[in-house]
Design a binder for these strands. Sequence first.
DNA 1: CGGATATTTGACGAATCTCAATAGGCGTGG
DNA 2: CCACGCCTATTGAGATTCGTCAAATATCCG
Lengths: 254, 254
Amino acid sequence: MTSRDPENPVRDLNTLRPARKSPFEVRNPCAACEVRDLSLCSVLSDSEIKDLVEIVTELELKAHDPVMDEGEPADSLFNVTGGTVKLYKLLPDGRRQITGFLFEGDFLGIAMNDTYACSAEAVGNVRLCRFPRRKLEGLLDKFPRLEKRLLSMASNELAQAQDQMLLLGRKTAREKLCSFLLSLSRRAALRGFDPAVVNVPMSRNDIGDFLGLTTETVSRTFTNLKRDGIIQQLEGGKVRILQPDDLQDLADGA
Amino acid sequence: MTSRDPENPVRDLNTLRPARKSPFEVRNPCAACEVRDLSLCSVLSDSEIKDLVEIVTELELKAHDPVMDEGEPADSLFNVTGGTVKLYKLLPDGRRQITGFLFEGDFLGIAMNDTYACSAEAVGNVRLCRFPRRKLEGLLDKFPRLEKRLLSMASNELAQAQDQMLLLGRKTAREKLCSFLLSLSRRAALRGFDPAVVNVPMSRNDIGDFLGLTTETVSRTFTNLKRDGIIQQLEGGKVRILQPDDLQDLADGA
DNA sequence: CGGATATTTGACGAATCTCAATAGGCGTGG
DNA sequence: CCACGCCTATTGAGATTCGTCAAATATCCG
């Protein structure tokens, strides 16, 4: 499948689904959730998930709206149900490192004990499910599977973080950008979209702050990849991957 | 306290404790474990910990002995009880990124699902507790606190990983090295050692691969910090921090 | 003591950053 | 509908940090 929603055939990771409205969905929004099987919630049955509905609040954000601030008490956890969120840390002089991008289905809040370890804000329009931390912890005790699921998600995130360290510490600008495009492609494929046409909803500046590069270097490197026929830039910030195998080879310097 | 073991007053993070031998320790080694309160095991009572003893194997390794290999089935998890272990990932052409150093009390194996996400090897002499993964997972069901503890440890590791991304992507060589020394100092302090005299058991090359620098740059940067009176090099790979506040300021570019 | 390995230092080069200018895209309002 | 202005992206030229290559020195260990 390339699109999981027959009513929105052209939707992609950039586009928010229309807000849900049907009577069933109002009664039990999580049961009808499109990203449910991608997320935390996948381990709960329809009946169990009602406990989740009890504690959840839905939020809609616009570009640059803050989600959380590093160092603040970690009172809420979130599930992204639409749009893109960026996580970042700042140095005192304003240098920024984006530590991750979250897409629909991604969970936000594993990396915190009492306070948030990083800040987060919406890249474009975003829809979130918000869980009060205390109440979610209560559910963890009630449903041990939820806790196992969180641990497994944390494990995945750690593996991803290690990949990103390898990228930041040891890859060239070109390798970094290729790795980035590949990871976007893989994540889109997981969600049922065409892996050859990647959405890049974030700015060059955000990409730079994610890859440890400047805006200018990101832009130049994009130009080089186009010139070499590896990718093609489409309208709306989309990128077509022309040579997936070459891209893969370039991504880890093979 | 600057040393937790009156029988080994000069011991530090470089030195392995002598192997345990007393009758009590043979019967219940975990109960007498010196690093117990630092680790996973801290949440188990003396009686509960007997279940852990049932499944644990102790290992001793020498420098460069492998602990695990990226991509291999993750059948064992480990607890470091002495010495230093490095975690790393490789690129096909041999470039290496060290993703972390583990000291006594640190747990090894959170970041894996079915296969190891990175390789690990001993930096010097190392003592490990090895847990078969299947059996440890059994204990997780028996002692939910153990699972909570793992989740909290994973959360800490993720926060650390994000700090490291900030370092790799946005800090200068000098800032990187200062951050590194500070983190060693903090971890030594946690274990009851003098935070002003830091052990640096790993090679310049390892430090470089951890900080995204070359050996030469690490060496030059050390020289600069000495020249500026921030640190002093002592024998045996130890470093004295002369100006902790300056070091802190240098570490995040303030 | 001696070979091997690790560290330090130097000279040079290259990848990336900085600064600056131009071009493009998008929304607003005339 | 077009014009303007703002913001982002691209491109260029020069500067800088850090990497590479090479040699000298120090350290470790048998």
